[in-house]
Design a protein around this nucleic acid. Structure first.
Length: 427
RNA sequence: GCCCCGGUAGUGUAGUGGCCUAUCAUACAGGCCUGUCGAGCCUGUGACUCGGGUUCAAAUCCCGGCCGGGGCGCCA
């Protein structure tokens, strides 16, 4: 096993002997001296190879990105501009890399997104690409940590489901032995069933599939959904959990990922609570801006851009009309045409959708039928509401979209290691 | 699902009917030079997405396929 990562060299005294293992990012050879810039997951170090090193001739035939193990000593004074240096005593080439590289790593040439994704394993060697996923991981960890400390249990629910769905999104068909099944668009129904099972607070981090033929910088056909559901809670409680989970996620990212503020769009842990605006207030703003918006319809992208300009970062749009929300969304006590629902927005990008849910089985059945769905297909779900279902609320969040807005990425595909879009199912 | 734009060496580009035997950068191979550091200099290798059509002549114009980027719709 590797004993030292490159960044460990920072604390080492001159004269200390180390073994560095990583990728040979740059190789330069001269008459009496040569250099290898070695990269590992933690950073760069220059291995300086003098003529008297017995492995000097290995440099001359070494290709970039070959995997090497280099032994050496920390020098008294560091002359390399990468800030770390070892004076080499021994070099082992563990595996050679073919040339030329499929895409440049340090070359001063841009590479198209398509070419990069076709060769993603090399693309990910670029520090500016790799750090996206360090950030995503740290954001998720911070959110998970917040939920775990609030009595949530992490669960896994099936991704293959039979015909009954929430309606709305198109689903992917999959052969399942002699049956036709679908890839689940969200864990919604399962989360609620687990609330009925007495777990009270559940969350899941997993894939969600949407067979929509969109081609935009903010859609993936397979994305990572963070979903929560909590018993004995209303939409305001769920919003509270959401904004604090996000603040904790971003806070964790900024405080644990190296140089986070240098590449993050958001430089500070966001203040909570996030501002809230109702759907009806949005329509009023649009009207004042002379933008035609139809009451009872969804806000389109252009409308959301107008609304988004009024807020610095994250904001909630609450109390959406019943007509644009799923059947399981609870309505306002004082006006049943509107719902206890909310979307979390960042400018025009929708990050999260959530609500208090209907917990009365009679009303729920009615709402399913109002949407034109067959309630018999939902019996597995409806019956969990008849034997003691508490009031509950929750949300579903697109992790790639969250990473996209936190980092200011131009395309959500950049936040997916191996994105799945309208045409890409490879690699 | 509808609409717009695009596809030229490994990578990224210039070229919109003949001056293209296709530009430049980077990579790659070889050489010179140098405790170098986006090193520099010289030489070399390497490309018009596929199929059909128009034309004396097509990278260039037309049609179709495939692939890509984006707008709308829809959503996380």
């Amino acid at each position: 096993m590797k004993e030292n990562f490159v960044s460990d060299i920072d604390g080492m005294a001159a004269g200390k002997e180390v073994v560095v293992r990583g990728w040979a990012q740059e190789i330069r050879v001269m008459k009496n001296i040569g250099f290898i810039i070695i990269r590992d997951s933690t950073g760069l170090v220059q291995a300086t190879v003098k003529r008297d090193c017995p492995d000097f001739q290995l440099l001359e035939k070494m290709s970039r990105e070959s995997v090497v193990s280099v032994s050496g000593i920390i020098p008294e004074s560091i002359k390399s501009n990468v800030g770390r240096e070892i004076i080499t005593s021994q070099i082992t080439v563990l595996n050679v890399s073919e040339t030329p590289l499929l895409i440049g790593i340090t070359d001063n040439v841009e590479t198209d997104m398509d070419t990069r994704f076709n060769n993603r394993f090399i693309d990910l060697r670029k520090p500016e690409i790799a750090r996206i996923f360090r950030a995503k991981s740290a954001i998720l960890w911070g959110m998970r940590n917040y939920l775990m400390s609030n009595k949530f249990m992490e669960v896994q629910t099936p991704k293959t489901v039979s015909a009954a769905t929430e309606g709305g999104a198109e689903l992917f068909h999959v052969k399942y032995f002699e049956k036709d099944v679908f890839l689940n668009q969200s864990p919604q129904l399962y989360k609620e069933m687990l609330v009925a099972s007495g777990v009270e607070r559940v969350f899941e981090v997993g894939p969600a599939f949407r067979a929509e033929e969109h081609n935009t910088p903010r859609h993936l056909n397979e994305f990572t959904s963070i979903d929560i559901e909590m018993a004995f809670a209303d939409h305001n409680d769920a919003m509270h959990m959401l904004e604090n989970a996000i603040a904790n996620g971003i806070g964790n990212f900024l405080s644990t990922v190296k140089d986070a503020e240098s590449f993050s769009l958001l430089k500070n842990r966001p203040e909570t609570p996030f501002p809230r605006i109702t759907y009806r207030e949005c329509l009023q703003i649009l009207k004042e801006n002379g933008y035609p918006a139809i009451h009872g319809e969804d806000l389109n992208n252009e409308a959301l851009k107008i609304i988004g300009k009024r807020f610095e970062g994250f904001y909630f749009i609450t109390e959406w009309p019943k007509s644009v929300r799923p059947f399981y969304t609870a309505t306002l006590d004082e006006d049943p045409e509107y719902t206890k629902s909310y979307d979390l927005q960042f400018r025009e990008i929708e990050i999260t959708s959530g609500a208090q849910r209907v917990h009365n089985p009679v009303e729920l059945k009615k709402r399913i039928e109002e949407k034109g769905l067959n309630s018999e297909n939902f019996e597995f779900y409806l019956k969990t509401f008849r034997y003691g279902m508490p009031p509950h609320a929750g949300w579903g969040l697109g992790l790639e979209r969250l990473a996209q807005v936190v980092l200011g990425l131009p395309n959500v595909r950049e936040a997916s290691l191996f994105p799945r879009d309208r045409t890409r199912v490879f690699p």
